[in-house]
Amino acid sequence: MLMPIAALLLTYLVTLALAGLAAFVLRRPLWVLLSELCGTEERSSFWTVWSMVMMIALPLLFVSWARVETDPTELLQGTVAATLTGILMAMGGMGLAVWLRVPRADSL
């Protein structure tokens, strides 16, 4: 059994590691895509940073809402599930926003 504060800190550490990895992997491809869509480097940089913040903040929010377990197995399982849900929701929101702004072949 973990102490509640140790369990909470471990939860946030695992969440930051997973969400940070996802943000790191997506940063460059997203910047390239947003450079094309936004038209300027400044706009692209802003929206890339905003997206990375959301990619980390949403999983942290989901993990913060979850009940902190002191059993290590349940703690890890709940943390990973909440983190992946947050990452997928952030990616879904970004994907929808980009998809709505991509020019269609029939509109050219």
Rank of each mutant, 00 (worst) to 15 (best):
P4A: 01
P4M: 06
I5S: 14
A6H: 09
A6P: 00
A7G: 02
L8P: 15
T11V: 05
Y12D: 11
V14N: 05
V14G: 01
T15M: 01
L16M: 04
L16N: 09
L16R: 00
L16I: 11
A17V: 15
L18F: 14
L18S: 09
L21G: 07
A22H: 01
A22I: 02
A23S: 08
F24L: 10
R27P: 01
R28F: 05
P29N: 12
P29K: 08
L30P: 00
L30E: 03
L30T: 04
L30F: 07
W31A: 15
W31L: 15
W31K: 12
L33K: 12
E36C: 07
C38Q: 15
G39K: 05
G39Y: 12
G39V: 04
E41T: 12
F46P: 02
W47L: 05
V49K: 05
W50F: 15
M52Y: 00
M52P: 01
M54L: 14
M54G: 13
M54S: 11
I56M: 14
I56A: 05
I56C: 06
I56W: 03
A57L: 10
A57T: 15
L60R: 03
V63I: 03
S64W: 08
S64D: 11
S64G: 11
A66N: 07
A66M: 12
R67P: 03
R67A: 15
E69T: 01
E69Y: 04
T70G: 06
D71P: 00
P72A: 08
P72Y: 01
T73M: 13
T73Q: 12
T73V: 15
E74Y: 05
L75N: 05
Q77R: 10
T79Q: 10
T79Y: 05
V80Y: 12
A81H: 10
T83H: 07
L84P: 00
G86I: 00
I87W: 15
M89Y: 11
A90S: 15
M91N: 04
M91T: 09
M91V: 14
G92T: 07
G92Y: 05
G93F: 03
G93A: 11
A97W: 12
V98Q: 01
R101I: 03
R101Y: 02
V102F: 04
P103N: 10
P103K: 06
A105C: 01
D106F: 08
D106W: 10
L108H: 06
